[in-house]
Amino acid sequence: MKGLLLLTLSSLVCWVSADIRCHSCYKVPVLGCVDRQSCRLEPGQQCLTTNVYLGKMRVFSNLRCGTPEEPCREAFYQTSHKLGLTYNTTCCNKDTCNSLAPRPTPALDLVLTSLAGLGLWLLH
Score class of each variant (00 low, 15 high):
44 G>R: 08
45 Q>S: 13
45 Q>E: 13
45 Q>D: 04
47 C>S: 03
47 C>A: 05
47 C>R: 03
48 L>N: 09
48 L>H: 13
49 T>N: 05
49 T>K: 14
50 T>C: 03
51 N>W: 08
51 N>M: 11
52 V>W: 06
52 V>G: 08
53 Y>G: 00
53 Y>H: 12
53 Y>M: 07
55 G>V: 05
56 K>Y: 12
56 K>L: 15
56 K>R: 13
56 K>E: 15
56 K>F: 14
57 M>D: 14
58 R>T: 06
59 V>L: 15
59 V>M: 11
60 F>I: 00
61 S>Y: 01
62 N>C: 06
63 L>G: 05
63 L>P: 01
65 C>W: 00
66 G>W: 01
68 P>E: 04
68 P>C: 04
68 P>D: 04
69 E>T: 07
69 E>I: 00
70 E>C: 03
70 E>D: 12
71 P>S: 09
71 P>Y: 01
71 P>N: 07
72 C>A: 11
73 R>K: 14
73 R>Q: 12
74 E>P: 15
75 A>H: 14
76 F>R: 15
76 F>P: 06
76 F>I: 13
77 Y>N: 14
78 Q>G: 04
79 T>S: 11
79 T>K: 09
79 T>E: 15
80 S>T: 10
81 H>K: 15
81 H>I: 08
82 K>I: 09
82 K>Q: 13
83 L>Q: 14
84 G>L: 06
84 G>M: 06
85 L>R: 02
86 T>S: 11
86 T>L: 10
87 Y>A: 08
87 Y>P: 11
88 N>E: 11
88 N>R: 10
88 N>M: 05
90 T>N: 06
91 C>N: 06
91 C>H: 09
92 C>M: 08
92 C>V: 05
93 N>Y: 05
94 K>A: 13
94 K>S: 14
95 D>F: 06
96 T>H: 13
96 T>P: 01
97 C>I: 01
97 C>Y: 02
99 S>T: 05
99 S>Y: 08
100 L>K: 00
100 L>P: 00
101 A>E: 10
101 A>D: 07
103 R>M: 07
105 T>Q: 10
106 P>E: 02
106 P>I: 01
106 P>M: 03
108 L>F: 09
110 L>Y: 07
110 L>N: 10
